[in-house]
Every structure is written in C-alpha cells, then in structure tokens.
Amino acid sequence: MFLFKKKSVGLDMDTFEARAVELTGNSKAPRLVSCGRIPLEEGTVKEGNIIDAKKAGEALGQLWEDADIDREEVILGVSNQGVLVRFANFPRVPQDKLGNLIRFQAQEFLPMPLQSVVLDHMVVGEVREENKEMLEVLLVAARKEMINAFVEALDSARLMPQEIDVSSLALLRMIPPEDKEKTVAMVHMPYEMGNVLIAAKGVPRLARLIPLNLINYVGKEILQGIGSCSDLETLDWSAYNINEWNEALVSEISSSVDYYHSYGEATRVEKICLSGCGSRIPGAAELLQEALDIPVENSDPLRGIKISSQLEEDLQGRASDFMINISLALRGLEE
C-alpha cells in the first residue's frame, strides 16, 4: 500500500542556499516525489558551517512547506573544513574488536583531540605492512561543535537527523553502473566548497574538498539564472569570469588526480563525472578533458529514478544540482 512505502529525505546546505529531495520506494526502484531549494540570508551558513541556527531553521521550515515535504527525519550531508577524511592501516583483528582498536589508535592520524570529534570508519581493503596483515580503513572525523550546530538548526525547524553523511563520500552511490569496475573521479561543484571522490572498483580511494567558490567568479545573479534556466546558451557569459573559473577547476581536479596517481599501487583514473551547477558553466567539461586527457561527462542523478512529468520539467537542466541530495536520500532507502 502507498501509505506504507518507505520515504527518505536528503538535505544539504551552503552559504547560498539549502536543497532537499524526498524519495520513496526502495533503493532498486526509487521515486522522486518532491524537491526544492531556498536561498539563505547572508550570515546563515558560511563555507558549509551553520552560523545562525535560528535563521537556518526558519529557512528549512519554509523549504519543507514550499516543496511539500512531509517527512521530518532527514539524512544530512556535510561539506566543510570541520570534517576530516583519512586513510590509515590498522592491525587485522576480529570485527567485534576493530571499533575499540580504532578508537584507541585513531589519535595518531588526526590533528584534533578525539574528544572533540564524532568518529566513524569503514574498512576498504587489506594490505601487507612489514610482513603483517593489516586492514586499510577510511576514517571520518567530524567536529562535534559543527555537528551540534546543524542539529540545532534542524531542531529549530522541527526536523531530526536520521543519518549524517560526508558529501564527498555520498558521491560513491552515484557512480554510473557501467563504471563500477573502473577508477572514476566524481566531482560535485555547488556554489562553494566542491567535492572530489576518486573510487577504484567502487572503493573510495581519495575524498577531498576543493575550495572553489562559484559566487566569487560568477556572482549571485548569474547563479540564480543557472538554478532556474535550462537553456544556458541564451545567457551572455562575456561579462563573467568563467575562464578564470574553468582554469581554477582544471588546476584543482588535476592536483587531486595527480595526488591519487602518486600512490604506489593506484590505478589510472579512467573517467571524470561532473555534477552541480558548476558543471553547466560553458567549457568546463571540454577544458578538463583536454587538459587531463581523461574522458569527462556530466552526471545524470535521475538515472534509474522514477519521476513525474511535472517534476521532470521543473528539474530540466538543473537536476545535477541535487546530486548529493539524491544520493543521501537513496541511503535512506537502502535495506
């Protein structure tokens, strides 16, 4: 029955706006039932951090009303300097002892006190180190103060965090099915603080923020146009610093790919997938492909997702802005 279908909401926020997507069904047959975005007042969020929880809560309440989202539990994506992602090797121990071992040794790999962070981990492989079997572990440390500010904002809007995910790692779910066995760089470029994830055969190998703020290069007015206009060819780009933006993007992605390739056993990146409003800046994909000699394509986050004709029309040309949100919501539909 429809009333008992599972629902999931993915939410993320940056300096410019808050975005949310609601899915229903299950991870194999998801349906997008609502989505929306709302501009944020200056001083509400800065570089992915909540500055004014009350204002953020008011905006979220309005977003829920405007987008007709009825689920109060959300899966939140965070993307800021308060989140650290590190790869580390730990002795191979039984699964039931691994958590305690990581908590005991994690301080060696983190630049902040453990008591100030929320710590999570994922085993991504096994390696030999000095003739010992070791587990390769991805560590995630998020500052408690930063997380608490988001929780306060959600509470102000009468919402609750179901899960909290790192936006860059959320891109793992959005790798195209035909590329699951390849080494792929997923690049998401919202209004600020872009995300890069490099995965080899579906295993995360590098995750980082890229400090590119589209507003600084292009300005708010044109970004609002990107958010609502699907026919970018009609816009006059001559007055904006898109060449500087494209060059900065190439520099950041090139640095990330080169850093990954510097690992001893790293496989070559075979494809780059772009998403976010920055992916629609003219010339970005072409310049990246030419500079790195790697195939580049724009991602389609609606692939495999059922959607009404009205929502599809509303999202035409800007669905990739909701790439992270869709991935977060898909997490909530997983069994």
Rank of each mutant, 00 (worst) to 15 (best):
L249I: 11
L249Q: 08
L249F: 10
V250W: 04
V250Q: 00
S251N: 01
S251I: 03
S251W: 00
S251H: 07
E252I: 12
E252V: 07
I253N: 10
I253W: 02
S254N: 12
S254V: 08
S254E: 11
S255H: 04
S255N: 13
S255F: 07
S256A: 15
S256M: 04
S256N: 00
V257R: 00
V257I: 14
V257D: 01
V257E: 02
Y259M: 13
Y259H: 10
S262A: 11
Y263Q: 13
Y263F: 15
Y263N: 14
Y263A: 15
G264P: 01
G264F: 15
G264V: 14
G264E: 15
E265S: 09
E265G: 00
E265F: 11
E265K: 08
A266I: 12
T267R: 14
T267H: 14
T267G: 10
T267V: 13
T267A: 15
R268F: 03
R268V: 10
R268N: 06
R268S: 10
V269D: 07
V269P: 03
E270I: 11
K271H: 15
K271G: 02
K271R: 15
I272R: 08
C273E: 07
C273G: 05
C273R: 00
L274A: 13
L274P: 03
S275G: 10
S275T: 12
S275W: 15
S275K: 07
S275E: 12
G276R: 01
G276S: 08
G276M: 05
G276A: 12
G276N: 01
C277S: 11
G278W: 03
G278A: 12
S279Y: 00
S279H: 05
S279C: 08
S279W: 04
R280G: 08
R280H: 15
R280I: 13
R280K: 15
P282K: 05
P282H: 02
P282M: 08
G283Q: 04
G283M: 11
A284H: 10
A284P: 04
A285I: 02
A285K: 00
E286S: 09
L287M: 11
L287T: 12
L287I: 05
L287R: 14
L287Y: 04
L288F: 08
L288V: 02
Q289D: 05
E290F: 09
E290Q: 14
E290H: 08
A291L: 06
